[in-house]
Amino acid sequence: MLEIRFQGRGGQGAQTAGYILAEAFFQTGKYVQAFSTYGGARRGTPVSTFIRVDDKPIRLRCDIEKPNVVVCFDPSLLTGNVLNGADENTIVLINSQKSREYFREYGNFKLYTIDGLDIARKNNLGRIVNSALIGAFAKLLNAPELKVVEQVVEELSPVKKAENIRACQDGYLQVAGA
């Protein structure tokens, strides 16, 4: 089973990103489970999205304590419990313009960064970084297939479909350290 945690703040699209990723895995024939926990639907409060992917039905109904992947939408969250349970085998993807070396002090992980904000702005998406991060994720995990991810981004983006697909492709190409 692949266990993934997305950490963001309300309004950043971490929840939507989790669901897009779940849908993409689902469309490639996997069993998935994705859920979010948050303290009320408010902008700015921390939101955790949990995604499980497996070849058989998923029965667990609990948080992911030992993630295979952590995607952090906001480096200001790194001082909290965002990296709990992550170890040297965990892929940690951070949305930041800073280099991987800057985050080494947080621990020994398979660390990658992506400047999601830059990609979002260049694609006329303002501060919405989720498509870029999904693209970067697909590159790092080599799954789901980029074509399927693009298809799901198109299906599920309420507006600016073409811009979101481009941001996803940019994220795929630009993730640092891959």
């Binding site: 669901y19 779940a22 849908e23 689902f26 069993y31 998935v32 489970q33 994705a34 859920f35 979010s36 926990t37 998923i58 109904r61 609990c62």
Partner: peptide, 12 residues
Amino acid sequence: HEAFYVSHSVEP
């Protein structure tokens, strides 16, 4: 059903 673990859990 329970909040989040079931209510907001997206599954097939």
